[in-house]
Structures are given as structure tokens and as C-alpha cells.
């Protein structure tokens, strides 16, 4: 549906306007965070900083750095483990189907849509009993478990596209469940691992509800620390904006470098193949 050439300038104009609206928060973050505190006033909000001042980044960094490290300790193992589990589940639920396996898959899938408030009270009681409450390993466990549905979905969709004949002929050649997984599916699913990895990395990095209820103070991931920045008496907008940018940096970088895979994950996580 290519519109006539008369409309094209209007089309570009509209797109550029929409684009500018979507980029407006970026402009606000950058200009606000680079201003010294005395320029953070209502009349100067939209102006560029008269001189570039990195002190708000210094301050935000010194406050967020420990939590930033916590987030890294959380997100790396949690992403790897949940991708591995999802891959195993996806393999079995697509290539080793059994009676009732599709129902089982639907039952697993339901877990990704529930509001986590509905499991939070028993979850915290449980973590207290196994002494993982207020620990990063506790949060890792939580993210791995509640990541099972979405990673299983993604890998199952992914493996469904591997032709069944390929598996059958491998079986005739005497390959068992491990060999088929190791030598056929894993090599074929490198991009699947990238998609799932990025998806889980982004989700776990950005997650807040578990983080704020399961951990306190020095165990907290970066998003909780960012939220706490605004809890202080005087709201220093320049420090907050710098903090927001620092906290968002890892997922933004991943998006900039591997955006194609991010969008793939987005589509894979919502539409069933």
C-alpha cells in the first residue's frame, strides 16, 4: 500500500514528529543530567546546559554502583540457568511429546501471565525457611523458576521449526535423546539462545517487584536503588536523571547492539508459532 507521491512529504513529516515526541524523554534525561544543580529550575528545563557538568553522574554512580554490581551477580547466572532450563523443556515438549504434554505446556505457560503478587506471600515465607530471603541467590532462584514459562515457550517455538525427519533419521542412525540434543538442536539453536538470553537479561535487569520485596538495602538490585534515589528529602532531578541513565545503560546497550534479537524475542514471547 504505497501512498501516492504527494503524500510522502506529509508521511515523513508525521514520522519525524512522532519520532521527536518519542525521543523527547532522552533529550530531557541528557540535558537535565548534564546540568549543575542550580540550573535545574522550572524555567530552564528545556534549555541546553550552559556548561556541561558531570557531577550528577559522579554522585549517581557512587550511590548506585554497589547495587549495579548486585544486579550483575543476579542477572548473569539467572539468565544462563533459565535459558538452559527453557531449552531442555522446549526440546522435550516439541520433539519428545507424550500424552498430555501439550496440556502440560499450557499449564506451564499460564505461569508467565500471573500477577506475581498472587505468589509473593508464600514465596517469601518459603525463602525465609530455606534461608535465601534477602540474598542474591534467593533472587536468582526466583527468576529462574518464574522464567521457566517464557523460556520454554520461546525454545519450544524455536525447536518446532526443526523438521521432524531430521530427528527421525538421527534416531535411525542410533542417536539417543542426548546426542540429538547435543549434536542437532544445540548447534541449530545458537540464535535461539541469543534471543532468550537477551529477553531474560532485559526482564531480570528491569524487574522490580521481586527485587523490592525479597531484598533489603545492601542486597538490592539497581532498580530498587534508583527508586530509592527519589525517596530522599530533596529531589535532585539531575542526579535522578543521571541515575536513570546509568541504570538503563546495560539493557540499552544490549538493545543497540542486538536489537534485532530483542524484537524477535518480543514477537516469540507473545505469538505462538
Amino acid at each position: 500500500m504505497v501512498l501516492k507521491s504527494v503524500y510522502r512529504p506529509i508521511l515523513y513529516l508525521l514520522l519525524i514528529m512522532l519520532g521527536l515526541i518519542f525521543l523527547m524523554p532522552v533529550y530531557v534525561i541528557l540535558t537535565t543530567s548534564l546540568k549543575p544543580i542550580d540550573q535545574i529550575t522550572l524555567s530552564q528545563m528545556w534549555q541546553l546546559p550552559s556548561l556541561i557538568d558531570f557531577s550528577s553522574y559522579q554522585m549517581a554512580f557512587s550511590k548506585l554502583a554497589p547495587n549495579f554490581i548486585n544486579s550483575l551477580y543476579l542477572v548473569i547466572p539467572a539468565t544462563l540457568l533459565s535459558a538452559l532450563l527453557g531449552s531442555l523443556n522446549g526440546y522435550v515438549l516439541s520433539k519428545w511429546k507424550f500424552k498430555g504434554s501439550d496440556w502440560l505446556f499450557t499449564a506451564i505457560l499460564f505461569g508467565m501471565f500471573i500477577p506475581y503478587q498472587s505468589i509473593l506471600i508464600p514465596l517469601i515465607q518459603f525463602l525465609r525457611t530455606i534461608h535465601l530471603y534477602n540474598t542474591i541467590p534467593g533472587l536468582i532462584l526466583v527468576h529462574v523458576v518464574y522464567g521457566i514459562p517464557v523460556t520454554t515457550l520461546m525454545f519450544r517455538n524455536f525447536y518446532s521449526s526443526v523438521p521432524y525427519e531430521m530427528i527421525e533419521s538421527a534416531k535411525i542412525d542410533g542417536a539417543g535423546i542426548f546426542k540429538i540434543y547435543r549434536h542437532i538442536l544445540i548447534p541449530l539453536s545458537i540464535s535461539g539462545f541469543v534471543v532468550v538470553g537477551i529477553w531474560q537479561f532485559t526482564n531480570i535487569w528491569n524487574e522490580f517487584l521481586f527485587a523490592v520485596t525479597i531484598t533489603t538495602s545492601d542486597q538490592q538490585p539497581v532498580m530498587v536503588a534508583l527508586q530509592n534515589l527519589s525517596g530522599s528529602q530533596i529531589v535532585q532531578w539531575n542526579v535522578q536523571m543521571a541515575g536513570a541513565l546509568l541504570a538503563a545503560l546495560p539493557t540499552l546497550l544490549v538493545y543497540i547492539v542486538l536489537g534485532k534479537f530483542f524484537v524477535k524475542g518480543l514477537l516469540a514471547g507473545s505469538v505462538k508459532g
Binding site: L18, G19, F22, L23, M24, P25, V28, I29, T32, T41, L42, M45, T202, W205, N206, E207, F208, M223, L226, Q227, L229, S230, W237, Q240, M241, G243, A244, A247, A248, T251, L252, V254, Y255, I256, G259, F262, V263, L266
Partner: peptide
């Protein structure tokens, strides 16, 4: 430009828009 906000956390979005939609500024 239209996709990148999805890579952000709701917390980041909340903090930034709190500033943008601050009625006094």
C-alpha cells in the same frame, strides 16, 4: 526510535516521566 523504550525498566520510565510531567516544571 519507537522500539527502544521497551528495553527500559518501568522504574526508569516512571522516574523520567515524573520529571517531564511535573506540573511546576
Amino acid at each position: 526510535i519507537f522500539f527502544f523504550p521497551m528495553a527500559l525498566s518501568f522504574i526508569v520510565t516512571g522516574v523520567v516521566w515524573q520529571w517531564i510531567l511535573n506540573p511546576s516544571t
